[in-house]
Nucleic acid binder design. Structure first.
Lengths: 211, 211
DNA sequence: TCAGTTAATGACAAACATGTCAGTAAAGCC
DNA sequence: GGCTTTACTGACATGTTTGTCATTAACTGA
């Protein structure tokens, strides 16, 4: 074995996390070993200990790296938007489906499902994120639509999780069945929009429209 | 240690599987050990090897045990049913939510998510089941509704997975967030029915009703 | 009741994972 | 170039899990 040692103090942690990500994905949390991560990262097993004390620490750092705040931009867009609410909702839901297709989103969810009980903080964090960015934004869109007479007032007390549910369903479907029967993303998105927009539209008789 | 050995050739396999189920649930697949299963089952570790060669075999037998065919009864009910389709759909979706709340369903899904890649046969099996019993039944209900003028014809080309999506969403929500924020099952079911039934109803102008 | 059968056990060897640390070599500095 | 620093390595000691098997004890039936 030729020794091709490299010193890369800055880059190492990220290289290790990237390798760990692949290993977690392949073997699950408990099934992942330091040896496996090291091999994939192309370094010695001992090197990992220079940067991370334990598997838990690696896991923690990894989930932090994946976290992003993708909806902020859309929240800002909402402030100045002036068009019809259904187009706005459509944009929101399309964004949700895009998110759901990201491999990192899928990995994170997979981890939440399989290891969540070992990491309650992580679960709490994500719950807060979903409520703060996702659902509250959707709430504003829906109520904007009701106020403008574009959505039926009766839907005000709908639990809005059912409105994004098809995107969640698509995410898990892909997560589980992708190798057997990959989803037609576009078809699902269209069905989703169709279902939801039909449902939210006000009954034709009762127009409170300002238009 | 008092030796309280029991001989129970017939009952053992099931006892082992039950213990394994609890261990898988607690520690995941890779995190589960023969020692853990044996301890929980109250037997010696060696005994397990009399019935199962490996962890994979245990897992396989376990998933087979969990499998049931819960929708057959409903399919039969559909044959003779003569009432309105929305009530029928409501019954179907309610059943889905009940299913989703079963701890065994949750465990099975958790396993599919975290270990599915290691067990492609299991994934295929479940995919077939979902299509055969779940979606095809829903398909029949929806088309019955369209034929009777109770549902809008436009929804015929909807991907029906979006119709059950809220139940799936509820399942995964519980799976991940139950400790942080348990779902109000009833509220979700009501929102689900509300969303879907509003959407499926035909536009009031275009009644094709036979009523 | 005793001999035969076999389910069940737990000690054992082998395989594997973890965390440590003395030593090695790559980079920085004069 | 030679000296210092330190990122990196891999062998070691320790602990855990696996699979085997000789032994044990619970049932069986004549």
């Amino acid at each position: 074995m030729t020794e091709m040692r490299k010193r890369r103090k800055d880059a190492r942690p990220n290289e290790i996390l990237t390798a760990a990500l692949a290993e977690f994905e392949a073997n699950g949390f408990a099934g992942t070993t330091f040896a496996g991560i090291a091999k994939r990262a192309g370094i010695a097993r001992g090197t990992i200990y220079l940067y991370f004390d334990s598997k838990d620490r690696i896991f923690d750092a990894l989930t932090r790296r994946i976290l992003t705040d993708p909806l902020e931009e859309m929240a800002r867009a909402l402030e100045v938007y002036d068009g019809p609410s259904d187009a706005l909702l459509e944009r929101f839901l399309t964004h949700m489906h895009d998110e759901a297709a990201e491999t990192e989103t899928i990995l994170l969810l997979r981890i939440l499902v399989s290891e969540g009980r070992r990491f309650p903080d992580l679960v709490r964090l994500h719950h807060a994120r979903i409520n703060d960015s996702g659902l509250s934004l959707l709430h504003r869109i829906v109520h904007r639509g009701i106020a403008r007479g574009e959505f039926a007032p009766e839907i005000a007390d709908l639990d809005l999780r059912v409105v994004i549910a098809p995107a969640i369903m698509a995410l898990f479907w892909q997560m589980i069945f992708a190798p057997v029967a990959p989803l037609d993303r576009d078809a699902i998105l269209r069905s989703h929009l169709n279902l939801v927009l039909r449902s939210l539209r006000p009954a034709p008789g009762v127009r409170t429209d300002t238009g």
